[in-house]
């Protein structure tokens, strides 16, 4: 039997002696399609039924537009806060040694582990005008619960771990010799931090910001209890989807969902671009 001539050709998979490729890939694709892709496709089908003009019409409805503004605007602000404090927390946790550091490190993941509804009612009762913190804020003339401030607080809560956990591994990996080199060249600590330590961390900080932002925009459970859900003031986009659904306005729900997915997609794309740029520039993510 003559063996086929060897010629370079791009094949679907590299040969391997390990068995089970067809079976495992088949199962993976089946599950992925049934659980994730088909239902998402249903949304795309439904939304394309509305057409761009249909989606635009929903988006420009004053109540929807206001909800989108609330969700995206406050989430951006909250993600900014989470990034700043997240960086500080990550820095303190990796660079300084203090009693209880391990415990503090574990606490950071609390928003990941605590069910959002639980976080929601806890935040609401804490920041309510008669709540522990709300009372103090009221004295300063700030009403947190049932206003956009409450939404902001909830979004910082759920966004924080994203900000911390994205920069933390990079702070761990900072080569101390880089900082020593800067010091031997005469640079003071502040100069070293701003010129040598921080710049390579910027991509990670941006990535953490984007993740916290995307999470804040989509968040529902921890916000609705504290938000007050006043149309045009403190009503978030995900809640409006729920309201549209309960009114059996599937089209409206789909339009809002599509806009939110679109913006999440752009955010994800931005993250990938940041990381690709960072890899090119510094040789690492």
């Amino acid at each position: 039997m003559a063996s086929p001539p060897l010629r370079p050709r791009r094949r679907f998979r590299q040969p391997s002696v390990i068995p089970g490729f067809g079976l495992t890939l088949g199962y993976t694709l089946t599950c992925l399609s049934l659980i994730v892709l088909l239902p998402l496709a249903a949304l795309v089908v439904r939304a394309s039924g509305l057409g761009l003009s249909g989606i635009w019409e929903v988006a420009t409805d004053p109540r929807v537009a206001s909800a989108l503004r609330v969700s995206f605007g406050i989430s951006a602000l909250a993600a900014l806060t989470a990034s700043l404090f997240g960086f500080l927390v990550a820095w303190v946790l990796t660079r300084y040694d203090f009693p209880g550091r391990r415990l503090v490190d574990a606490v950071v993941d609390l928003p990941f582990a605590l069910p959002t509804a639980v976080a929601g009612i806890a935040l609401a009762s804490l920041y309510a005008p008669n709540g522990l913190v709300g009372e103090q804020l009221a004295k300063l003339g700030i009403q947190a619960a049932y206003t956009p401030v409450g939404i902001y607080i909830a979004m910082v809560f759920i966004g924080l771990p994203f900000a911390v956990r994205t920069v933390q591994p990079l702070i761990v990996e900072i080569d101390k010799e880089i900082e020593e080199a800067s010091a031997t060249l005469g640079a003071g600590r502040f100069h070293t931090l701003t010129r040598v330590v921080l710049p390579p961390l910027i991509p990670a900080v941006l990535t953490g910001f984007a993740l916290a932002f995307a999470r804040g925009v989509g968040e529902y459970g921890s916000i609705i209890f504290i938000a007050g859900n006043l149309p045009y003031v403190s009503e978030i986009a995900p809640l409006l989807i729920v309201i549209k659904l309960s009114e059996f306005d599937y089209g409206g729900a789909c339009a809002i969902a599509t806009i939110m997915l679109g913006i999440s997609f752009v955010t994800l794309l931005a993250i990938n671009l940041i990381q690709a740029w960072s890899r090119r520039r510094f040789g690492y993510v």
Binding site: L40, A42, R46, G218, I241, Y250, A253, M260
Partner: peptide
């Protein structure tokens, strides 16, 4: 694609199943 559900709002995750299996769904 496997990571996709992480970047979808929980509400939208519920919505897509309503769109498939709900009374007005596919």
């Amino acid at each position: 694609l496997i990571d996709l559900p992480f970047s979808v709002s929980p509400v939208v995750s519920g919505l897509i199943y309503v769109l498939v299996f709900g009374s007005q769904g596919l």
